[in-house]
């Protein structure tokens, strides 16, 4: 009885502020809107538009490219760095502290700062590259390079996440296995392949999942760094939906778009779900 009372406020809160808005969004998605006011019930017509909207598909493509590239690079860089630094090291705690800074730096502020970092005339990145003999890169005015810039900023921000979590997990691995491997004369490559990798697999899997879920939500960095441009080159899914809702006041259609994104992310999570249960010790 007491247990239910303890749980009640949080459950009510989620029902009111999360489940109710979700249902409200569903209701919205079945209607058309005019001047921000509900117009008429149109059934599934907003959902039908999802299949034929080239701009939405472009947003989805940009997002998928962004997600695949950033998550892959972050996983590789972050895990590699953790492997390299998984040893006794003076000043390691200071290094770890510094690595947490990007994670908590306001993403909009980072994107905004990126405008000056990637400044094409004499900005620091292009100055550095030209000292290496690489000609000026049109970071923010060229569709391809603008997406690269957005991706680089995200990699800067989130690689430390993979690093910190991997390092914490590596340090918790049982030392006796490594001692046994050394006694048996295993090479570093064999030790990595047969001990480190299998033991780290659940953690890497968890990191992958968390990064995937978060990356699909991407909004702040493209909004502040490139405003989705040039053209639609960096207009990610959430940015397109935001504009549908808040600039064109096409609320019903924007809600339908939101549900499509939810379905896409849920399918990915569902494919991987059994494992998360174990990771979160959902024993009861």
């Amino acid at each position: 009885m007491a247990g239910r009372l303890f749980l009640l406020p949080a459950v009510v809160w989620v029902l009111v502020f999360s489940i109710f808005p979700l249902l409200y969004a569903l209701y919205t998605s079945l209607h058309s809107y005019r001047f921000g006011r509900i117009n008429e019930f149109i059934g599934l017509r907003n959902f039908e538009r999802l299949f034929t909207d080239a701009n939405l598909h472009s947003g989805l493509r940009v997002t998928l490219t962004f997600v695949i590239v950033t998550v892959l690079v972050q996983m590789i860089l972050g895990f590699a760095l953790a492997l390299i630094l998984n040893r006794e090291l003076r000043g390691k705690s200071v290094f770890r502290a510094i690595m947490t800074l990007p994670l908590f730096a306001t993403p909009v502020a980072v994107g905004y700062l990126g405008i000056t970092v990637f400044y094409e005339q004499n900005g620091p990145v292009n100055s550095f590259l030209s000292s290496l003999g690489i000609a000026n890169i049109p970071w923010l005015s060229n569709p391809f390079w603008a997406l690269v810039a957005v991706i680089i900023v995200d990699i800067w921000q989130w690689t430390p996440f993979v690093f910190l979590v991997s390092l914490a997990a590596l340090q918790a691995l049982p030392a006796d296995l490594y001692e046994a491997a050394e006694v048996d004369g295993a090479s570093p490559a064999q030790t990595f392949r047969h001990i480190t990798l299998p033991l780290m697999a659940p953690t890497l899997f968890l990191i992958l999942l968390l990064r995937l879920v978060e990356s699909f939500k991407v909004f702040d960095i493209p909004m502040s760094l490139t405003l989705g441009g040039p053209g639609r080159a960096t207009e990610v899914y959430s940015l397109f939906t935001y504009r549908t809702a808040m600039r064109f006041f096409d609320h019903g259609y924007a809600a339908a778009q939101g549900f499509l994104l939810l379905v896409i992310v849920s399918v990915i999570v569902a494919l991987l779900f059994r494992r998360i249960g174990q990771l979160y010790e959902l024993e009861r």
Binding site: V14, P21, K217, A245, L261, L282
Partner: peptide
């Protein structure tokens, strides 16, 4: 308990942009 934990965890999956419209309205 497992249901409740999963339920709270699953909140993280919801794309924020889906909530822009209902919260605005």
């Amino acid at each position: 308990n497992r249901f409740f934990t999963t339920w709270f965890l699953s909140q993280r999956i919801l794309p924020p942009v889906l909530f822009v419209i209902p919260f605005f309205l």
